[in-house]
Design a protein around this nucleic acid. Sequence first.
DNA 1: AAGCATCTGTTGTTTTTACAACGAAAGGAA
DNA 2: TTCCTTTCGTTGTAAAAACAACAGATGCTT
Lengths: 225, 225
Amino acid sequence: MQEFFPVLRTVPLFAGMEEAELASLLACLNALKRTYEKGERILRAGEPVRNVGIVLDGRVQVYREEFSGARTLLAQLAAGNLFAEAFACANVKILPVSVEAVTDCKVLFIDYKRIVTTCPSNCAFHARLIRNMMGVLADKNILLSRKIQHISKRSTREKLLSFLHEQAGLHRNAQFLIPFNRQELADYLCVDRSAMSAELSRLQQEGVLSFHRSAFKLHVQEDGQ
Amino acid sequence: MQEFFPVLRTVPLFAGMEEAELASLLACLNALKRTYEKGERILRAGEPVRNVGIVLDGRVQVYREEFSGARTLLAQLAAGNLFAEAFACANVKILPVSVEAVTDCKVLFIDYKRIVTTCPSNCAFHARLIRNMMGVLADKNILLSRKIQHISKRSTREKLLSFLHEQAGLHRNAQFLIPFNRQELADYLCVDRSAMSAELSRLQQEGVLSFHRSAFKLHVQEDGQ
DNA sequence: AAGCATCTGTTGTTTTTACAACGAAAGGAA
DNA sequence: TTCCTTTCGTTGTAAAAACAACAGATGCTT
């Protein structure tokens, strides 16, 4: 287990804990390590989940089986990422997604009940763990809300502007780098890449903004309204 | 405070607690009641928030100020509803939305720190409160994910089918009632109401489904694929 | 440097959506 | 019942997006 401490130190769930603390905490949590081969199914949609998963090594993907039979990829997770945390903590613990190993990988499972139940020995880091878990859920919440804010807009132009203004706000600067390439941005905003590229060009031509690759700059608007 | 116990009993945060327990818990949480007049601002975007809000009486609305200056209504909350819970629990506690009183109203504020910190007297209901809070955050998370699943689809038809199949799944029945009227459904799916109505009619004509008002029935598809 | 794969912007065509305007149905209140 | 309001479906038109195909730019590997 020792070997994965560098990874575990980066997991938000364990933020603010030293290796020694982590060791005692993991024992107290009765964490379970499992190994999967490439392509193996880790969690299956429809099952009840009571464990939070942590990728220790390799890559896993989270996807949804549509009614049509199609697979929608929701996320690719590398070492250090959590999965199934919302479903484990929710009141209805039925998993609506599936999780599969993209490469050979190792996963750590932690029983949700162990997280929310302060241990009999009243271990000092448990309180911290609970705060962290809430932070993880709340942060995800905010991330999802933001995304909805953008993709709720009817036109590609509005989606782009909503996203870009948010980025400017986060950077506290009208000039900033976005964390996506074009295809990723299009996927995030749920629009066609080429159509989005065209819209970006129009915005640039109209002087609303300028960009080069992932570097953007929003121009101040002096509209006559 | 007594007078609001009927409302508080319905708040998910206090699920599973009796009135007597609630009374001692509220004292332990040092909850603060405040009164607002119609139109008064309750929380302002940009401020740090450390309190979870609970509507005790009246109605409040949560909205976002867009970069364009427009207001986007995010929610109208009646008595018994929580607000700002994700922001209070998140790691960055800056509020991206504003909250305003739609009618004269009363709001109860609870300090987030008091929720996650088990009290010195180690009150028995605190553990329950923490589980509830996580449940609230996780449930919201799932709700948001579902919505994204639907509105991510490119066409109105796909959005509708994604939503309706989900509803059928939740009801475990191909025949079900949806919790929206047409305008609400259109708002939820982020499309134009009339265009959506037209698409529903086409789907019915093609035999994919049938409906009357909020009652829907999905027909089994025997596609030749 | 050469070759290759990926990323990005452009254009034309087809499909879909938004928008606006209207009439019918449903439901409530007087 | 009658009136009035809200909800819902329909249609035509204008606007926007998806889609497909391509070319230039960029970056990496050999």
